[in-house]
């Protein structure tokens, strides 16, 4: 019998089992999947609704030095969470611009990652924050950094039957700040022309001890320009240092022309947005002081 079937398991193990079948697709918010299905772009044999699984229920928790965001947590939950607002403002900024309120009430952080759109807003932030994901699958449980998860255009490193159970972001050690910037043509409901996540942690002397940069819409997947990050380490923050990191990040980007913008423009915007995001992250690190 052909066509799409629907299952709503109430146990994680059952979900893993169902997802192991060919043509099975996980489903939580549906803000990517249902669009693709309505427009005939994808026709799964089975849609596995994850929303009845207790381990995945919306939850943001501090645990073992991480902030853990469960798979079914939606963008509006993230936007409104006091600790996330305080410690990872960039994630709030990114969550806030995903679609509309109607979308954000349904779209999950895990889904945004699993969909692996190169223009997605949250992955550059999660990359910059050194986030990792917890995965459950037929082979058991494992952990993977976000920038390893995103392999290629709409392709993740998840194997058959694997699903993201949580996103884990390490709590900063020391004064830290982050920022997210998005460039587009209109102010809402926008797929970015370029988007940037940046994060800094400062040492006792005010120098940068760790820096993270994530770039969106400049490659087939969200990327981490490590050479640009390397520019920052050990340096004292300044507009010049940020501009230098920005320039290196620009060199590492090779964006294409597409419907939304030309590659040349995008490439020229990377240094500007990286510089500005780093600056904002630094301002926030100074505001926060030590935790």
């Amino acid at each position: 019998m052909s066509g799409t079937a629907y299952e709503r398991p109430s146990e994680l193990a059952k979900a893993v089992e169902l997802l192991a079948a060919v043509g099975a697709h996980p489903f939580s918010g549906g803000t990517d999947l249902m669009v693709a299905m309505r427009h005939g772009k994808v026709s799964p044999g089975l849609v596995v609704d994850l929303k009845a699984i207790p381990e995945l229920a919306p939850r943001i928790e501090r645990r073992d030095g991480f902030v853990e965001i469960s798979a079914n947590t939606v963008m509006t939950d993230i936007e409104r969470h006091g600790h996330v607002q305080s410690v990872f403002p960039a994630l709030v900024e990114a969550a806030q611009v995903v679609g509309s309120v109607q979308i954000r009430n349904r779209a999950t952080l895990a889904g945004n990652l699993a969909n692996a759109s190169p223009a997605a807003d949250t992955p550059p932030v999660l990359i910059a924050l050194d986030a990792e994901i917890s995965i459950a699958g037929p082979g058991g449980v494992r952990v993977m950094p976000v920038d390893e998860l995103l392999v290629d255009y709409r392709t993740t490193a998840l194997g058959r039957g694997e699903l993201i159970t949580a996103v884990r972001i390490p709590e900063p050690e020391g004064p830290a700040g982050s920022a997210f910037l998005k460039l587009g043509v209109r102010k809402a409901m926008e797929i970015s022309v370029v988007c940037v996540g940046a994060a800094l942690t400062l040492g006792s002397g005010g120098e940068i001890v760790s820096g993270g940069i994530g770039l969106g819409s400049v490659a087939p997947r969200s990327i981490r320009p490590r050479s640009a990050e390397a520019v920052l380490i050990g340096r004292h923050p300044s507009p010049e240092v940020f501009a230098e990191a920005g320039a290196v990040a620009g060199d590492e980007s090779s964006p294409i022309d597409d419907l939304r913008a030309g590659g040349e423009y995008r490439k020229a915007m990377v240094p500007i947005l990286v510089r500005r995001a780093l600056h904002r992250a630094w301002e926030r690190a100074q505001e926060r002081g030590s935790p």
Binding site: Y6, R8, G30, T31, M34, V35, R38, H39, D49, T76, G99, S100, V101, Q102, I103, N105, R106, M189
Partner: peptide
């Protein structure tokens, strides 16, 4: 496709695009 909001309704207190929500 969840872009225009013409189908917005409130489900359990939250506004959502009903075109992307399954009845089940």
């Amino acid at each position: 496709e969840g872009e225009c909001g013409a189908c917005s309704v409130i489900v359990d207190g939250k506004s959502v695009n009903s075109c992307l929500v399954l009845a089940v």
